[in-house]
Amino acid sequence: MASIDLDRVLDKAWADRSLAEIMEAPAAALKGVSERDGELLEEAFGVKTVADLAELKYVRWAQALGALAAAAK
């Protein structure tokens, strides 16, 4: 199983939280996602939490396409 450095992907306020807490955190808990970005994600796609973003079908489609493209190289 791959590990992830939470300090690299989360705002400092969230880096020491449990995974369950992180998944219920607002999307802005992700490093690089501003409060305004979070508002826009909610307006456009109904995304309120990190879990919502992870489950968003467009994100899953993009990940699948990326994996296919990488495998085709």
Rank of each mutant, 00 (worst) to 15 (best):
Gly66Thr: 02
Glu24Ala: 15
Leu40Arg: 13
Asp7Cys: 05
Leu53Gln: 04
Ala62Gln: 09
Arg60Asn: 08
Leu19Phe: 12
Val33Tyr: 13
Glu35His: 06
Ala2Tyr: 00
Glu24Phe: 04
Val50Thr: 01
Gly32Arg: 13
Pro26Gly: 15
Ile4Gly: 08
Arg8Trp: 03
Leu56Val: 00
Ala64His: 06
Leu68Lys: 08
Leu68Asp: 06
Leu68Gln: 07
Tyr58Asp: 11
Ala28His: 08
Ser34Asp: 08
Ser18Leu: 09
Leu41Lys: 10
Ala62Asn: 04
Ser3Ala: 14
Leu53Phe: 15
Lys48Trp: 01
Ala15Ile: 00
Leu65Ser: 05
Glu21Leu: 12
Ala25Gln: 06
Asp5Ser: 09
Ile4Thr: 07
Trp61Arg: 15
Gly66Met: 03
Asp37His: 11
Val9Ala: 08
Ala13Cys: 03
Ala27Pro: 09
Ala69Trp: 03
Glu39Asp: 14
Leu19His: 09
Ile4Ala: 15
Asp11Lys: 15
Leu53Gly: 04
Ala44Thr: 01
Val9Pro: 02
Lys57Ser: 15
Tyr58Ala: 11
Arg8His: 07
Glu39Phe: 09
Glu39Pro: 00
Ile4Arg: 12
Ile22Cys: 11
Ile22Gln: 11
Val9His: 05
Ala44Ile: 06
Asp11Ser: 05
Gln63Arg: 14
Asp11Tyr: 03
Arg8Asp: 14
Ala64Pro: 01
Ala20Met: 06
Phe45Leu: 12
Leu40Glu: 14
Ala67Lys: 09
Lys31Ser: 13
Ala72Arg: 09
Glu39Lys: 13
Ala51Tyr: 09
Asp37Cys: 13
Lys31Asp: 10
Gln63Val: 10
Leu53Asn: 03
Val33Lys: 05
Arg8Val: 07
Gly46Met: 10
Gly38Ile: 00
Tyr58Ser: 07
Leu10Ser: 10
Ile4Lys: 10
Leu41Gly: 07
Leu56Ser: 00
Ala62Arg: 12
Ile22Ala: 12
Asp5Val: 05
Asp52Tyr: 08
Leu19Tyr: 10
Gly46Ile: 04
Ala44His: 10
Leu10Tyr: 06
Ser34Gln: 06
Trp14Ser: 10
Leu41Ile: 07
Ala67Val: 04
Thr49Ala: 07
Leu19Trp: 11
Ala20Arg: 10
Glu21Lys: 15
Phe45Gly: 02
Val33His: 04
Glu39Met: 12
Arg36Asp: 13
Ala71Leu: 07
Ala28Leu: 00
Asp37Phe: 02
Leu41Tyr: 15
Ala20Gln: 12
Asp52Trp: 06
Gly38Tyr: 03
Ala29Pro: 05
Lys12Pro: 04
Arg60Glu: 10
Ser3Phe: 14
Lys48Ala: 12
Ser18Cys: 07
Asp5Glu: 13
Leu30Glu: 04
Leu40Gln: 12
Ala13Phe: 08
Val9Ser: 07
Thr49Val: 04
Gln63Glu: 13
Phe45Ile: 01
Ala71Trp: 01
Ala71His: 01
Asp52Asn: 13
Leu65Cys: 06
Ser3Asp: 11
Ala15Gly: 02
Glu43Val: 02
Val33Ala: 10
Ser34Leu: 08
Asp11Gln: 14
Leu10Ile: 06
Lys57Ala: 14
Val47Ser: 05
Tyr58Leu: 15
